[in-house]
């Protein structure tokens, strides 16, 4: 195949699967007019869903970032038994269906779950409330940071860290001044990916949230509900909002990747 033919094939493929569909959402969204769009994303339910989505991401992302970095350090920099197991387990959410994730959490933290009743007796309700949504989101976002940081740690090796140690730096100082700056772009990329996933997660959240409008309804759940209620204009408007967040994420990803490759 000639170069032009290859290029055309790629464009047709990407066009059919990717570009045209995304463009269509925007067309659908704004065809009823900007005013209609605005009023459907400013209903009390939509505003609550928007803030809840951001809240969940704001709690989830720091948790998975810290956990991802610690796990990466354990996997690459120690010889502890079980570090290989950790590597597989932390990758697991990547391959597990969101529905399974949701079900799994319900079975442990739900009303009849393993830990649910004990938690309920001290007043903590996980399932059908915000903590459950956070837990589900943490589960699905778990792999991103570790997956990005592990190869960077392997690549840089431990020479710089050992050099810092011989110069008198404590482990904490070495981590803050040497390790963290070295992995910062991998970490940033992992954080951006986690954020995107946290905002966009649907399946796992839909199982654990209970979908109470104005309480436990996130943006993605709102999209589904509106669609099921034959309010497709409203569904597209909420989708567009998510798409705008996605595009912002995408641009941040590109920026971070550029920075990382230039390093």
């Amino acid at each position: 195949m000639s170069r032009i033919a290859l290029r055309l094939t790629m464009f047709v493929y990407l066009g059919l699967v990717l570009i045209v569909p995304v463009a269509m959402v925007l067309v659908r969204t704004f065809s009823p007019g900007l005013g209609a769009f605005w009023s459907s994303v400013t209903t009390p339910a939509a505003i609550h869903a928007f803030w809840l989505t951001l809240l969940v991401a704001a709690i989830t992302v720091p948790i998975v970032a810290v956990l991802g970095v610690v796990a990466a350090l354990v996997i690459v920099r120690t010889r502890l038994p079980g570090r290989r197991l950790l590597e597989v387990v932390i990758d697991l959410p990547f391959a597990i269906s969101p529905v399974v994730v949701g079900l799994a959490l319900v079975l442990v933290y739900g009303r009849d779950g393993w830990l649910g009743p004990a938690l309920a007796s001290v007043g903590i309700h996980m399932i059908f409330s915000v903590p459950g949504i956070v837990l589900a989101t943490v589960f699905v976002c778990l792999p991103f940071v570790a997956r990005e940081v592990v190869p960077v740690l392997r690549e840089i090796g431990d020479d710089q860290e050992l050099a810092a140690a011989t110069l008198g730096a404590s482990r904490w100082t070495t981590f803050i001044r040497i390790t963290l700056p070295s992995i910062r772009w991998g970490l940033a990329y992992g954080i951006v990916l986690s954020t995107a996933r946290a905002i966009g997660e649907f399946g796992a959240v839909s199982v654990v949230s209970g979908k109470v409008s104005g309480k436990t309804e996130t943006l993605t759940l709102l999209v589904e509900k509106r669609y099921q209620n034959f309010d497709s204009a409203g569904a597209y408007a909420a989708s567009a909002l998510l798409a705008i967040i996605a595009v912002t994420t995408l641009l941040t990803m590109t920026y971070v990747q550029r920075k990382a490759s230039r390093q």
């Binding site: 020479d159 050099a163 011989t166 008198g168 730096a169 404590s170 390093q263």
Partner: peptide, 20 residues
């Protein structure tokens, strides 16, 4: 005694320069 507290200067084959 930990390497931090030995007061040794160590030079590595591949420099171990702090790249950032």
């Amino acid at each position: 005694v930990a390497p931090q507290d030995r007061g040794v200067g160590f030079v590595f084959q591949h420099y171990a320069a702090f790249k950032h």
